[in-house]
Amino acid sequence: MDSAPTPNSLSEELVKELDSIPEGDRIKLCIQCGTCSGSCPTSSAMDWSPRQIIAALRAGYLDEVLRTNTVWLCASCYVCTARCPIGIQFTDMMYALKRLGLKHGIDPPDTRGSRLMKEFVAEVDASGRNAEASMLTKYFLKADPLGGPANLGLAYRMWRKGRLKLRREPFAAKDQLAAISRSLGGDS
């Protein structure tokens, strides 16, 4: 984790992140019509709706935005992106916000979303692929120990049907992934 970010440095970083999204600066053109919020299948569960997130970002409330549950409730269905009349790629913006939050350790109170991502990424870095059973076991043990046992019955039934692999497939190209990761500044 980097040194504690200030609101200003965070905003600057977001601008840079948004620059990496094709036409990311379109957020400036938002007319607050609310098409994104009305289209989003999970907005009813969000602290702040997508429209409110854009308004808050433009007003400089990045820190607060990163502490909403909104970012982690985006399931990447891209319907907001498909419908935005001004061409804002809101789903990709959600990804940029997830990355910023993870980088600076700024989480909403419910950290299950970011915990799952961390386990997923660790699994892929370690074995080249997502071994679902291993990844989910670690996730539930660490992030949701009370929610885990409820899945054991389903896991057993899936295993019986040949739909849960307990052993990882061998993956011979780990060195290649490690070289790619090193080149991009990763540490795996």
Partner: peptide
């Protein structure tokens, strides 16, 4: 042969460069 994870929604929400590079591999 030797395919690796595409990165899925989880990797691109963590590290865009690596997500794209793993897919591009």
């Amino acid at each position: 042969d030797q395919w690796s994870c595409c990165g899925a929604t989880a990797y691109v929400g963590t590290d865009e460069d690596k997500a794209v590079a793993y897919s591009a591999r």
